[in-house]
Design a protein around this nucleic acid. Structure first.
Lengths: 254, 254
DNA sequence: CGGAACGTTGATAGCTATCAATCGACGTGG
DNA sequence: CCACGTCGATTGATAGCTATCAACGTTCCG
């Protein structure tokens, strides 16, 4: 076996690790989990997985007794569509996140859509663990905190769309994504995989494709970011911060 | 006692009823409560109340052990402010709603602000009841459903700000408010008290005061609405619906 | 009466959308 | 191998929605 093959195998193993560890990392970043809980979440992440094609819609079984699903790789989004074809990506769903909140109200025109190839695992065990504080003291709290953080990010999204310019929206989103990708191990040297097309960015930020393109080019000319070949690097976090005013949600110990 | 005085007294009693009943109506509109549960919520609504002046900020005690507070009269809003003074009303809080979700993450620049005089009551009993399914089978489910509905309305807000024009935003918001005021008994003949200034409307819908004004006047000229003296009447719901595409969240029986 | 808060109106500027066309990358079938 | 179509990114020209600035009217209240 040549060293290249060994390296490739090593890399595959690392990738697999990151995938099966996404949930454990995501929840573990919110508060301290016991080793047993971390191990438990790793096993959930390594369980039988479903594969979804890019652009496919993930059907959410209605009712709150359906088991939740967690993304372990790929990006998805909660999408709302208007009758005339306009669409809004309401919130991005990244590895370690549940596809939808535990109790979701049915809404015509609302779906979960894959932006890349997506792998999901069944989260029924997590829901059960969250209801068994004796054995899993941290998981219940972490699941709650995760939901609260997602709501805080939703408020960020409202503020972005309501009160920020195109330039600020893009900068703010990039900082949010950096903040979210960091704990799940997807960031290296301030860069991370960025699979969104400019059209998706527009639908997420309430902008037209053309204007997204022009805004990105401006940020490139100012050397704030590098975005090519599906990878985004934040070259100047202070400048982005100054432009976007992104404030990460603060978790308080309770 | 003249008949005028009798009528006035009757009216005061009705108003008091509506206030103490706001929580019961709000939660009872989501699913069937037992008579005991309804009575329980009435007593909560009639409990000791706090009074908040217009424009005052309601401090949220950090931590998830603080008892939640419910509004029983008046309007408030969750507000985010940017460093340069821009502000965004993220979500309106109406009678029967909790001031904030059960577990709230601290965020610099986020507050709850009264838009009118506001009366609140302590919701600790509701939280306890929600954890005692044996005695209160419906309340736990209703509280959860209410939170899910609020999240759905937040997604509406995102879509409004991201993908609708000023005219559509205003129409959509008016339909949402009608939808929310109906179950708590505030709507009479398609009209309800509407205490928002045009500046607040702008901060809520991501528009400037001037443009809010012009949009309202257009809708008045088209005879879609009547808005004067703090009262809003929707004269042409079908036309508003056609313009705004408001879809009320659908609760499914589980 | 003066001032503050809110609403209204006009003029102008500016941000962003829309339309149209081009370009490169990629995969497919002839 | 090349023609072809599709998708995404890019660019230019233009239109349009909305913000900003400024001024004025109205109501209310001390």
């Amino acid at each position: 076996m040549t060293s290249e093959l060994i390296l490739a195998a090593e890399k595959r193993r690392n990738v697999a690790d990151i995938r099966s560890a996404a949930i454990a990392r995501r929840l573990g970043s919110l508060l301290m989990l016991t080793p047993g809980e971390t191990e438990f979440l790793h096993r959930v992440g390594a369980g039988p997985m479903s594969l979804w094609a890019p652009r496919s819609l993930i059907e959410q079984p209605a009712g709150n007794h359906a088991s939740p699903r967690y993304i372990i790789s790929g990006w998805a989004a909660q999408v709302r569509e208007l009758n005339d074809g306009r669409r809004q990506l309401v919130q991005l769903v990244l590895p370690g996140d549940p596809l939808a909140p535990q109790l979701q109200i049915h809404h015509r025109g609302q779906t979960v859509q894959c932006l890349t190839m997506v792998q999901t695992v069944d989260g029924a065990a997590i829901r059960l663990a969250a209801r068994d504080p004796a054995n899993f003291p941290g998981i219940a709290a972490a699941v709650e905190l995760a939901a609260a953080r997602d709501r805080a990010l939703l408020l960020d999204q409202v503020t972005r769309l309501g009160r920020q310019t195109a330039y600020e929206r893009v900068a703010n989103l990039f900082l949010e994504l950096h903040y979210r990708c960091l704990p799940i191990g997807l960031v290296h040297a301030n860069g991370f995989a960025f699979p969104l097309t400019q059209e998706c960015l527009g639908d997420l930020l309430g902008l037209s494709v053309v204007h997204v393109n022009r805004t990105l080019q401006l940020m490139r000319r100012q050397n704030l970011i590098t975005l090519r070949q599906g990878r985004l690097t934040l070259n100047d976090m202070p400048a982005l911060q100054a432009a976007a005013e992104f404030k990460p949600p603060v978790l308080h110990r309770s």
